[in-house]
Amino acid sequence: MSDNDFDFDLTPVISLAGQEDLDPLVGYILKANLTEGLTKNDEYRRYAPDHEKYRGAIEHEIRAFGGNSFLNIFRASGPSYREIVQDVADKFDVRYPKDASIETLEDLILLKIAGQAYEKMNQKERQEFLDTLGVGSLISALPKSLPVAVVQAAIQASGASALNFTLIVANAVSRALLGHGLTFAANASLSRAFSLFAGPIGWVITGIWTLLDLAGPAYRVTIPCVVHIAMLRRKLAMKTCPKCGARYARSQKFCSECGQKLPDGDGAVASLPVKADGDEKLS
């Protein structure tokens, strides 16, 4: 892939993702059958199913699908990933500020899906859902609709909550569309959340799919890809506990699973806050 194809919001995520991370993306693309171009790509033909060897083709394909609804003929490649996410947000009638970061856009889309799924849950599931996101104790009476502002504040405040939230939604989408959940080392409570909420979120996705049959087949690729990439962005931003393998955010001093004192980080990234030879600090 040339430098010109570098997409600020997509390329880093695809470049750092592993085989298991890329697998659902390839699954969503291949499900598009006749309209996809991935299986015609030389690198794919040569290396499939070793997804890490044709990351560029996967990225290109996602952007090409995004371009179906954007008059792609006037562009050298597909639209920017940000435009694709905005397009999906518009599809879900999500309101967002023009200068919102890509994370905020992704959060709002996932919150919209979760909000619709929340309405399909029973009382017990609602309470567990809020508890899983770490906001159950903040709300005195169980609301009938998802308290979006509270959940958004919680996932913005904690990297672990954000990852859990995106994992639950991405896992449910994968189960609904690919027939299997994500491959991810989850603790007991997260595994329970996976199976508990797969149903309600899956129903929402299945309902949307019926509408998309009429509205635009490209969304059948872009919507699940946007959900999955939102999860990958959170996952890749986390680090792994050297003792138990649990994910933790950079700000954590101790592992929330095993209590292990966590290292500051590795190599150059760890030393970012340190001023080096007149360079500016990370703001």
Partner: peptide, 10 residues
């Protein structure tokens, strides 16, 4: 946002 920043830096 923090996650995007972290991923970009990594």
């Amino acid at each position: 946002g923090p996650s995007s920043k972290e991923v970009l830096i990594r």
